[in-house]
Structure formats: C-alpha cells, structure tokens
C-alpha cells in the first residue's frame, strides 16, 4: 500500500545550518509514529515540513497522493486533511472556545453554522470539556487549552494529525488528561505523527518510534524493540538520559 506520508531525501537548510540531512520518512495510513530525539535534532522541522509550515530545500513530499510542491496542488486544501497540534496550543485568543472550533469548518469548508456548532459540542464532549464552550482561551488551564486545540483540529476531519510536543508546555498534573485524549485518537484510524518525550505514551500506542539526531533519522523500530535493544549508541545515550529522571 502506498504510504499516506511519503518524504524522500529531504534536505532543509536554515542559512548555513543543515537542519535535515537526506531524510527519508514514510507513514502508512492509520499508523501511529512517535518521533523522539535530543533538542535541536530536527524533529519539529521534519513534521512542520509535512504541512508546509516549513519549506524544504530539496527532496520530495507526497501527502495522500498529492505532491506538496506540485503547482497543481492547492496547499490550503491539502492542509485541511493534515491537522496540527502545537506545543503552545495557539488557540485564537479573541474567539470563544466554540468559535475557535467552528471558525475553520464554517469559513474554510463552508459548513452551515448550526452543523458546525453541533459538531463542536460533540467534540468538546469527546475531549471532556463540554461546559467551557462560551469561555475564552485565556480562562482555561493549559490542559484544557490543549484539548480544545485538539478538538479544533478534529473539527476539520483530518486524515493525518501532527503533534509537536503537545504536553511539554503543560504542568505535570495536566499531562495525563491530554495524553488520554491522544491515546483514544491513536486507537481510531487517524494517521498520527507525534513528537514527544512521553515514552509511556509511545510504548502504549505507537506502532513505530523514530529516533532523530543532528538532522538525521538514526534509528526506527517498534517501541518494544527500541526500548529493549536500542541499536545505536546515540539512542542508548538518549534513552538513558530521558528515562533516568
């Protein structure tokens, strides 16, 4: 089966800095992939290339059969199928929770307001904050904000969801509630690429772990294998660092 995310020989430069070095990365439909690696290794850069928040210097990216850099590809249309959840939530502070969720479906997809509202209320129930619809983002806790951000992404009914360290800006006691929602999504047929250092989450739901260092994919394996027998010294060192505190 053709992978839903196909990245071939990706290079990315920031000025003189070589952030991604000949990276090949494929994800099958429905697969849950966790990316980990030390700070500055290029994890964010890699997943931000998937929805073109970053442009690559060279290489080829095909998402759901569409070449990202083909002139005929409508990037805004493609982005509707690729949701993204950010470390710092990036909710729209001037809109209520409900409006945060309904804005894209009504404006981008032209969904009728009533339908969008119904969808939003269902999604808020799913992320377990049904009673905050009329508040503003500034009035919610970090964990609630991130769950709203997930609901906002789900409202576009994406096939792929990208997470970039969704829990690392959260207070420890709120990490669990966000991970619970993410685990549920992982068990459905969403294709998920998640940058995270939550190894418990990776062990529980990931089909594959990708370890990056210095702009390269150093190692990929199933979670069991990766945790039990890391092949490279770099992965061993990384694991001992994050698991020992």
């Amino acid at each position: 089966m053709e992978p839903i995310i196909k990245m071939e020989r990706i290079n990315k430069h920031y000025g003189d800095f070589h952030a991604l070095k000949d990276v090949d990365f494929n994800v099958k439909k429905g697969e849950v992939v966790v990316i980990c690696g030390p700070s500055g290794s290029g994890k964010s850069t890699l997943i931000r290339c998937i929805n073109r928040l970053e442009d690559i210097s060279s290489g080829k990216i095909v998402i759901d059969g569409k070449d990202l850099y083909d002139k005929k590809t409508n990037i805004n249309k493609l982005r509707q199928e690729v949701g993204m959840v950010f470390q710092h939530f990036n909710l729209f502070p001037h809109l209520t929770i409900l409006e945060n969720i309904t804005l894209a479906p009504t404006k981008v997809k032209k969904m009728p307001k009533e339908d969008a509202k119904k969808l939003a209320m269902e999604l808020l129930k799913r992320v377990k904050i049904p009673h905050q619809a009329n508040k503003y983002p500034g009035e919610l806790s970090g964990g609630q904000k991130q769950r709203v951000a997930i609901a906002r992404t789900l409202a576009m009914k994406p096939k792929i969801i990208l997470f970039d360290e969704p829990t690392s800006a959260l207070d420890p006691e709120m990490i669990g509630e966000v991970l619970d929602v993410m685990k549920e999504l992982a068990r459905e047929n969403y294709t998920i690429v998640c940058v995270t250092h939550e190894m418990g989450f990776a062990r529980e739901v990931a089909d594959r772990i990708v370890f990056m260092d210095k702009g390269e994919i150093v190692e990929e394996n199933t979670p069991e294998e990766f945790f039990k027998n890391p092949k490279t010294d770099r992965a061993k060192k990384f694991l001992s660092e994050i698991l020992h505190h």
């Binding site: 805004n76 982005r79 950010f86 710092h88 894209a104």
Partner: peptide, 21 residues
Amino acid sequence: KGQHEAAKSLGFNSFQRMWYI
C-alpha cells in the same frame, strides 16, 4: 507567529488568516 501557523494548519487561505485571525 503561532497564530499564523495554527491558521495555516487549519487550511485558511492568506486572506482568511488576515481577516478572521
């Protein structure tokens, strides 16, 4: 910058990003 990125990731075109967000 995160506001632009969130809006892009939801599929808003550049006019919509400016106007609504």
